[in-house]
Design a protein around this nucleic acid. Structure first.
Lengths: 337, 337
DNA sequence: TTTATATGCGCAAACGTTTGAGCAAAAAAA
DNA sequence: TTTTTTTGCTCAAACGTTTGCGCATATAAA
């Protein structure tokens, strides 16, 4: 069966395409199309198995019913959960979701954003990976509704919603300090992502507040490999730490594997606390204490902000930071000097 | 800056839109556009920051450069990995990816598929969730290039690539049997997904081959909750099992949590083997033996098949089953009677 | 009966591309 | 010089919608 168009229906019913279009768009009453005609049109549309051509409709109307989602990667559970929650909401709102993964590569991200401009998307939800994104700024300047999640740019007035990473970093570190630790290493992820930066700032502030000078900040990627490598390096270096603060659960896994290889016991030899919770953490040989982010809230707030912008509410600079929560388990020992 | 169109460039250069279009599409030589003109067009396009309108272009040409990906959910690591791998390849091929999550709900899936028809997508990669999908069949009949991953329909000649789940189920169960277990429970996921069905068939066959009559097959969802609940039920029932085979890593987590609550030791009291590998598994209090699926291969083969179809190669019914691999860890004890 | 209002629908342009066909001028061949 | 070929580009239609405006006809009011 060939693709049926509006004008096929029109021909069949000996009506104009205008009438068909109006009925099918729910604008029939507004344009005073008779009740009976409406019925006949709808029936014929069903009978012919009519499928609207979104490309034609978008070309004319400018509406694409499409939202783009740009995140580092969906194979990181943190982003996967958020992507899934967002996608579910968008589906309910009858939007299609375009998925863009940047793989933490700002060139890929920029390229994707550029290509998005061709698609007339109506909104963009993005966890940007670059230090500063010219492309994102361009999109923003062009009037596109954008909301940043997890990461954002302090110098751009793009609305964002993220965990209060500074507090998270501070809480985690303070907890370690309160438990008696003084030599605390921090294995970070992407140095240019604001969420990483804020976590590190929290770490530093907590140490400063406690009058601790020694700080060890290493790492550069939110992945297992980085956690493994940096832990190995840490153990082989001369610095002696009694606790490690990993800035993502992926990093934590790598760290744990390295610790195990070196036969270091958690928490007896080294304590561990990590950003990001995961259902696995409580099942590990040592259940890992973590800083849990309010995942669902992030997506929900993001959607709410986006909808606000789409409904032409005045473009305010909404910036939401949500409190994280420490989930206490057994990977941090109290250390008394 | 307003959106610039091809005709803006044309006006600026006093050329026809046809010429601009041809240059910008790389068809300049084919249509004998002068070298110098080509340069001037390209420069002006850059200068005006021209962005092609994909909707107009698709409307005319029928090409959408869009592939849809339909999976249960991206918050299941198995699908997340696959989605990510596929998306990366599609990006390289200059396709945009539309993400559709069905949440294992066939109505949602059907609705999404229906809406896809409006988008003129060029291909569809899907892990269908229903028992049989009318919508999918319609799309297939309409000539769309489709490849199924992980799940498929044996009665439709849609190409698919999946793990050989029968073998996987057989291997896992045989291993348990070889280790001396006779009472083996199987906690399954979605009963209607062929991957689940095949795994169960493998489980049954292995038991039959060993002359074991007792079979315990329970469960109905590929998630943690199901694993937890079914394990609880299993433990409270009168049947006594010495080993459990969970059909996904999510189920395994729930199972482990239940076992821990009931103070059952793995593998001393009960042995566990699970489908799906995960970087976490080796870090658990008891490293879990698993049946690892060839994730990357699945995506790669899927892409290859899809490309073949897109390039108008004869539509053959390619059906690929890839061998899984057992990763031996410590969750299965040998039991001697 | 004439005039005003309501009802039901159609005309035709527009959205920004792509594309088959074709035309004028320049270059080459005769 | 005339004819053929090549070069460089343009015309205009088409893709399937949406939409501002407008035109009959029917009904109600005067």
């Amino acid at each position: 069966m060939p693709v049926q168009t509006i004008s096929d229906i029109a021909k069949e019913l000996k009506l104009s395409v205008t009438t068909i279009s109006r009925v099918l768009n729910g604008k029939a009453d507004q344009y005073r199309i008779g009740k009976e005609t409406q019925l006949r049109v709808k029936e014929m549309a069903k009978k012919l198995n009519y499928i609207p051509n979104e490309y034609a409709s978008n070309l004319r109307s400018g509406k694409s019913n499409t939202i783009a989602l740009s995140i580092p990667t969906v194979s990181n559970m943190f982003f996967a959960k958020i992507a899934s929650d967002l996608n579910r909401e968008l589906r309910k709102l009858e939007f299609m979701t375009i998925l863009n993964e940047s793989d933490e590569d700002e060139h890929i991200e920029a390229e994707s954003l550029k290509r998005l401009r061709s698609r007339n998307i109506e909104g963009l939800i993005i966890a940007p990976c670059g230090k500063d994104s010219k492309e994102l700024k361009k999109l923003h300047d062009s009037g596109l509704s954008i909301v940043c999640i997890d990461r954002y740019f302090e110098n751009l007035d793009i609305p964002y919603v993220a965990t209060d990473n500074f507090i998270g970093g501070y809480m985690a570190t303070k907890y370690l300090i309160d438990m008696g630790h003084r030599n605390i290493a921090c294995i970070q992820g992407n140095k240019f992502s604001i969420s990483n930066i804020k976590r590190v700032e929290g770490y530093v502030k907590a140490l400063d507040d406690a009058g601790i000078k020694e700080k060890y900040i290493e790492g550069e990627m939110f992945d297992e490999r980085n956690g493994y490598l940096e832990t190995k390096l840490l153990l082989q270096s001369r610095v002696h730490v009694s606790a490690i603060f990993t800035l993502s659960s992926t990093i934590a896994i790598g760290c744990l594997k390295a610790l195990r290889e070196e036969a270091i016991k958690v928490p007896e030899d080294i304590s561990l606390i990590t950003f990001d919770d995961s259902p696995y953490l409580e099942l590990l040989s040592v259940p890992i204490t973590s800083v849990a982010q309010p995942l669902l809230e992030i997506s929900q707030v993001a959607i709410r902000i986006l909808l606000g912008m789409l409904n032409d509410e005045p473009r305010s600079t909404i910036q939401v930071l949500l409190k994280p929560k420490i989930i206490y388990r057994d990977s941090v020992s109290s250390k008394s000097y």
